[in-house]
Design a binder for these strands. Structure first.
Lengths: 235, 235
DNA sequence: AAGTGGTCTAGACCACGAC
DNA sequence: TCGTGGTCTAGACCACTTC
């Protein structure tokens, strides 16, 4: 009922806030029906489109579910959808170990759908935490003669950014696969660990609109130290 | 221009589809300005709210970005936001190894914010793939005398579901931490692996609205075999 | 000043669900 | 039949950007 028409914040937003507060405080519980749109119009003395705009915000945010002919109801929080915090480049210092053009070999060859004589840009980087190296990073991009890339740009770019620098094709989808395996000898040395020790492996593939893969990367993180975090999103 | 007023699909949706198609086909490219709302009203011979509803859909989906006073522009796909496919229960066969009430010990004690004499429901499960066990699962819920739980329900529930079964408090947020470590002896035996071998560890905490943790779990996955997958969401 | 998107109004007709 | 949410109209005023 505390809606101000003079406020800079839009009326529909104030209405949404007020209902969200009631849900957060437990005054409205999952399954409860909220007042009808017509009722809310009368309560707040606003037009229906304004009420609907507010309810729409809450529906998108996962707080409300609407049922045509029945009403609008408080929704149960959905914890199945998780988003990964994948901002590694901001969390660690990055050291560029190598950036070169080479003939592609497995496993990049098959992941990128290339032939055995095709060439790729190969980038190798080390992530440094407070107490030494925490992860090793290898990325492969199909080599494109016409589009040179600056080493300086490669040092701090993530895979989608790299792909975009080097091709005209727009990256539109990214896939991750995460698993654990033992450190290989070369990896162990770079990470100052024992070979055979546990490592977190993150494989990333970036695709163009056409479905064609335009970048592939493996990140090998030191066990225990290197962590991924994910949080649920209500909707 | 192929908008049908007789169609069952709403006009705003048809408009959104048409613009989305142009973007997907590359006819409109990131950074391009699309016709103004007023222009689209004239083109499609509809009211402005209808046009705006359509544009709003595309903005939510990440295809468009609006700039007050300037115009509406095609957005660059955002690949930073990743959603995890965490539907383990549907992918593997699950075997309930134990379900009992016990006095809480570390690490569950501190994760759940309990005292050393509090009790928890402890659930231990094994995930079975085609070729034997792939993961071991331990979950802890603060014990609530008044709310008994059936073993049968525990076998196939995920952590948020368990928490909801056993408390009146609603789970509203879930956090995951993912890393690699060496298998402990008991874990290795259950998974039929060598102790010290690589394991993918997923720790999950579920919180109530109050911020209080109401469930904690660890999943230990066999290296190489047990994998998590994540996909980018455009918005 | 002219054009843009952001907000809001006061109506309208419709499909759907419950009674 | 009545109340519900879903769609749509034809205006209006505003803040902001560009010229």
């Amino acid at each position: 009922m505390s809606i101000s028409r003079q406020s800079l914040v839009p009326i529909y937003y104030q209405i949404a806030q007020e209902i969200e507060d009631k849900i957060r405080r437990g005054e409205l519980r999952p399954g409860d029906m909220i007042p009808s749109e017509a009722q809310l119009c009368r309560e707040y003395r606003v037009s229906r489109m304004t009420v609907r705009r507010g309810l729409e915000l809450l529906a998108e945010a996962g707080y409300l579910e609407t049922a045509r002919g029945k009403g609008t109801f408080v929704a149960r929080p959905k914890l199945e959808n998780l988003t990964v915090d994948f901002t590694l480049l901001e969390r660690y210092r990055v050291k560029l170990l190598a950036a070169e053009v080479q003939v592609v070999t497995e496993p990049a060859l098959s992941r990128l759908g290339l032939g055995p004589r095709d060439r790729v840009i190969f980038v190798r980087r080390l992530y440094l935490g407070e107490e030494g190296p925490v992860a090793l990073d290898r990325k492969y991009l199909p080599y494109n003669k016409g589009k040179p890339v600056l080493e300086a740009d490669l040092a701090y770019a993530d895979l989608p950014e790299m792909a975009q620098m080097h091709t005209d094709v727009l990256p539109v989808r990214s896939e991750l696969v995460v698993f654990a395996r033992a450190l290989e000898a070369a990896e162990a040395e770079a990470l100052r660990e024992e070979p055979g020790g546990p490592a977190l492996v993150i494989e990333q593939t970036v695709y163009a609109q056409s479905g064609q893969p335009i970048g592939w990367g493996v990140l090998v993180g030191k066990g225990e130290v290197f962590r991924l975090e994910a949080v649920s999103r209500p909707y």
